[in-house]
Design a protein around this nucleic acid. Structure first.
Lengths: 247, 247
DNA sequence: CGGGGGTTTGAGTCCGTTCAAAATACGTGG
DNA sequence: CCACGTATTTTGAACGGACTCAAACCCCCG
């Protein structure tokens, strides 16, 4: 990840082909028949986004959906006072912007690349056409959206019943699944694509509080932080945070 | 509402007919063609639930969806410690249980009648059949689910950025749209179907805090409470709560 | 080498919680 | 219709977690 100038896949190489896409069998598009994948392949527009670049912006007319091939993307929502809050993260294999596609004409959130990203755009008309020809695609999105909803409500419940430290532990646990690599000594290492402010947004808290929790985690040997690099010496210690009784 | 022994519609009268349903043109079923409405009409099972009765319970296998004709329903989720928290309310014209229908096999929440309710059950097979024959129905649910999701995330943002008093004002404002009736003197009156505990659940707070906020609202003449009866003497005062600057 | 943003630390405050008790409303049976 | 037991709601006092404001720090980059 840190080793720069790597131009290997998934960022370089030949123009991507939907038939060979690594997500071919796992995204909501997996229900598509050969012909429909061909449509997808012909109409998709693939782009690379550098960290900080926007894929779409809140308030823009919703012109289609975006399928993430690789990279991490922040979905942010601007509150009335203009402050953009990170509401969720999305990664390779996931489709973004589909919610606003079904709900209305306008993106209600912004999507910003957190790392270097490869993203395929599928325009409105093509999605509509595929949806018409293949009702299973709609069911796929229905299924996906239902999970999103479960997730959102789970978060809501947690924010009411768990303190910030515990929610931070939950967050680390979720991030580790995607970013951590195991070391020889049994510890886990990862580099977060998130600023302290972003972490605070996710937790519904403030950067100062995040810093203090990090400090407390280090004191208790739950996790060691150095900038965006995190070491989890012992996963069990972290698991104890979310469930002290071990039940 | 308070005048008891009224056996008029929507609770008495002839067996309900989907073609004459007041929600015929407004629910997600409105996309159905004549034939399909006939299917609905033939297969639906209509029931009356008294306050406190369950429509379905968390953990039950999901056997279909329920369409609310009349009444208020609480969707509750049990946390690991067995305490059932009110997560949202649903009313006439809305379909419940559809989320779990699309997401999995099991209801992840319970539905409890808050008032006397008339509810139509549509079994799994019928819904599947309608969905197959009429892709627009899927899109309808997609649309509905997208709004649910927006709503859930809106709530999440609010719970992080607004204090409990302001969230309570938001709640009253939302409840008034459905329950309040205007009085001659310009004030609004309503009877809530919610206990203090339920209100606290929605706000992500405690009954004691709710009581204190009510007390504060009365001191400031924003709202007057007497049990579950609420008087809002001046709507502007309530609106000021959610937006002190009037911008 | 001097900005400058993000991050950390510190001190003080406040909102909301907790625990406990009192008051009130509610349902039931006499 | 009233008495009684129970559940809900309200009140009080004290505590504590997280926030605010402010300053110092640090790292990254030019």
């Amino acid at each position: 990840m840190a080793n720069s100038n790597d131009r290997a896949a998934p960022f370089g190489g030949p123009a991507p082909n939907c038939f060979q896409c690594q997500w071919r069998e796992r995204s909501e598009w997996c229900v598509l028949a050969r012909d429909d994948v061909q449509v997808l392949n012909d109409h998709k527009i693939t782009s690379i986004y550098e960290p900080g670049q926007y894929i779409f912006r809140q308030g823009d007319p919703c012109s289609g959906v975006y399928s993430i091939v690789a990279g991490a993307i922040a979905i942010r929502k601007s509150d009335p006072h203009g402050h953009a809050v990170l509401v969720r993260m999305r990664h390779g294999g996931e489709t973004i912007g589909y919610r606003d596609f079904f709900a209305g004409e306008i993106y209600t959130t912004s999507a910003e690349a957190l790392s270097r990203c490869r993203v395929c755009f599928i325009d409105k008309r093509s999605v509509r056409g595929l949806l018409d020809r293949n009702p299973a695609l709609g069911l796929g999105f229905l299924h996906r959206m239902a999970s999103d909803l479960q997730e959102a409500e789970e978060t809501l419940l947690q924010s009411a019943s768990l303190n910030t430290r515990t929610r931070m532990a939950h967050l680390l646990l979720a991030l580790k699944d995607r970013y951590a690599t195991a070391q020889e000594d049994g510890s886990l290492t990862m580099k977060l694509p998130l600023s302290r402010q972003d972490i605070a947004d996710i937790l519904g808290s403030r950067p100062e509080t995040v810093a203090r929790i990090i400090q407390a985690f280090e004191k208790d040997d739950v996790a060691r932080f150095s900038g965006r690099n995190v070491i989890i010496p012992d996963l069990d210690a972290l698991l104890d945070e979310i469930d002290p009784d071990g039940d």
